[in-house]
Design a protein around this nucleic acid. Structure first.
Length: 491
RNA sequence: GCCCCCAUCGUCUAGCGGUCCAGGACGCCGCCCUUUCACGGCGGUAGCGCGGGUUCGAAUCCCGCUGGGGGUACCA
């Protein structure tokens, strides 16, 4: 029952075939990853093909974005990118061959007739499949042509009969031909449809295995029919379960961060994204949850892909991302952080030395963040005058008297420190909190808020040292003044 | 409606008839560490959808039900 993912007699050739109608979503990215891993694992070829037969919705921008994201993820392709829009002659030749073989027929039904046909079948609780009329007289056809009509070409699905997919993940899946309509293979303008183009390309490109989303499974028998009618042998199929949002519906834009582009903008690095994606529907064993790319290439096996759909949990990605960031070499982390901030325009409108400041703060934020976009939440206070977060200010005002004592006590030590180093600041403040008989948490939190305006930030000692004595003292005084005001105000 | 698929903690999953009164990870809760938020360490919480079979024995096999997902275009 369990197929082993071993290469058969032919070298493995897989493909990723997105349609360039938007940015690459998480599901597509995982499909690409699975295909790439299968290819690299087996030493086979990974082919990239853009399915842009829908001229209306396909855009060059989308294509460029998909290529860019694949590259960002570290997924390189061996052949392509091929564009179906540039392979029209191949499809037309195959359509001609199907006509010669009598595998397709001209269908003249109007949209209204088709609708009526399907509605009637539905009303009678039958499958709403279209079977075109094939008994038109030559007079009727002449009349259609005289009226300027051109037919679509439908595949004559053999009846009775069935097509069985021997799916690597699902086992045998059988489709009764009675349930498969005579699908359109060539539109009335002669252009190929998806089911024709995809089947032809898989055959012509020598694809040996198709790994794609389960949403395509009902297309598979149609494509197998086309390939066989053309004298080809269908590839192996592996239909992977879909990725769902937290509402258990297929993941889409409205679930937020549904595209790789968004994950990148949110400050996630390719390594954790890959790691999180590969674990949606695939597992290696009962324990391992982090893998390097090399380990994935070595261990990936289609036979271990799950049959049931998986809910995408951003929280889990965050955890993996945080761990990855913390494990990075500090210098590399600094490079990546500054690069990310530059790329998102973080330094625009800031002082010329802002990138340099960011680099110096990198060690202070590395252990604290789960994604690069959290930088501002941690260190943003360094780049601008204090702005109190409402909750942080509220925390201070909860017990104004104590807050003033803490901040005043801290100020008293800080303003007289000659050598304004992290160690000296730490010693002075530690001493002061002893004197005031407070816990570290009680004493240090007000300092943090006074200086940064935030309840979460870089470490307080480092923060003060970075700010310098003069600025630190100024911020302490400002906070004190603000609190004194609200105290007198009576609260 | 019709066709196809799926079903283990809240989530991702291990499990392929006995070694499972179900293991890991994330989350959540508690404790510890760092005289700071964070990080880290330790412990806890929580699950085989239901009903029938088969079998000495079922989370694992079969049937039904229920629930969920996908498809149903001259889109891909």
């Amino acid at each position: 029952m369990h197929h082993m993912d071993t290469a058969d007699d032919r070298p493995l050739r897989v493909r990723f075939a997105p349609s360039p109608t938007g940015s690459l979503h998480v599901g597509g990215a995982r499909t690409a990853l699975f295909n790439w891993l299968a290819a690299r694992h087996a030493g086979g070829a990974f082919i990239l093909r853009l399915e842009d037969t829908d001229r209306e919705r396909s855009t060059p921008e989308s294509e460029a974005e998909i290529l860019r994201v694949l590259t960002w993820m570290g997924l390189d392709w061996d052949e392509g990118p091929f564009r179906q829009s540039e392979r029209d002659d191949i499809y037309r030749e195959c359509i001609d061959r199907l006509k010669e073989a009598g595998a397709v027929y001209a269908a003249w039904e109007t949209a209204e007739e088709l609708d009526a046909m399907r509605a009637e079948a539905r009303a009678n609780k039958r499958a709403p499949v279209v079977r075109g009329r094939r008994d038109h007289t030559s007079e009727e056809i002449a009349a259609f042509e005289a009226a300027g009509r051109t037919p679509v070409w439908r595949f004559a699905v053999p009846l009775p009969g069935e097509t069985v997919i021997d799916d690597m993940i699902r086992g045998q899946v059988t489709f009764d031909h009675a349930q498969i309509e005579d699908f359109v293979v060539a539109r009335s303008d002669g252009s190929p449809t998806y089911n024709l183009a995809a089947a032809v390309d898989d055959m012509v490109m020598g694809i040996t295995r198709v790994i794609r989303g389960e949403d395509h499974i009902s297309n598979t028998p149609k494509q197998m029919l086309v390939i066989r009618a053309l004298g080809g042998e269908p590839p192996q199929y592996a239909h992977v379960p879909l990725i769902l949002g937290t509402d258990r519906k297929r993941l889409s834009k409205r679930h937020g961060a549904a595209s790789v582009e968004e994950l990148e903008a949110d400050g996630f690095l390719p390594q954790p994204v890959r790691n999180a994606l590969v674990l949606l529907g695939w597992s290696y064993d009962d324990k391992t949850t982090t893998f390097t790319l090399d380990e994935l290439v070595e261990k990936f096996d289609v036979s271990r892909i799950s049959k049931s759909p998986a809910v995408f949990d951003l929280k889990k990605l965050e955890v993996m991302s945080g761990r990855y960031l913390r494990a990075m070499d500090p210098a590399e982390f600094a490079d990546v952080l500054v690069g990310y901030l530059e790329g998102t325009g973080y330094f625009d409108g800031k002082a010329a030395d802002a990138p340099d400041l960011a680099r110096r703060t990198a060690p202070l934020v590395q252990r604290k963040m789960s994604r690069l976009s959290e930088y501002d939440r941690l260190a943003g206070w360094l780049y601008r005058p204090v702005e109190f977060e409402p909750e942080a200010l509220a925390a201070l005002q909860e017990d104004v008297k104590t807050s003033i004592q803490c901040i005043g006590g801290g100020l008293g030590r800080v303003e007289v420190l000659d050598d304004f180093t992290v160690d000296n600041i730490k010693d002075a403040l530690s001493d002061q909190l002893h004197i005031q008989g407070l816990t570290a948490r009680e004493f240090l939190e007000p300092q943090r808020i006074a200086v940064t305006g935030q309840s979460i930030s870089t470490g307080i000692y480092e923060s003060l040292a970075l700010l310098g004595r003069e600025e630190s003292v100024a911020r302490y005084r400002a906070a004190l003044a603000l609190l004194a005001e609200s105290w007198q105000g009576g609260d």
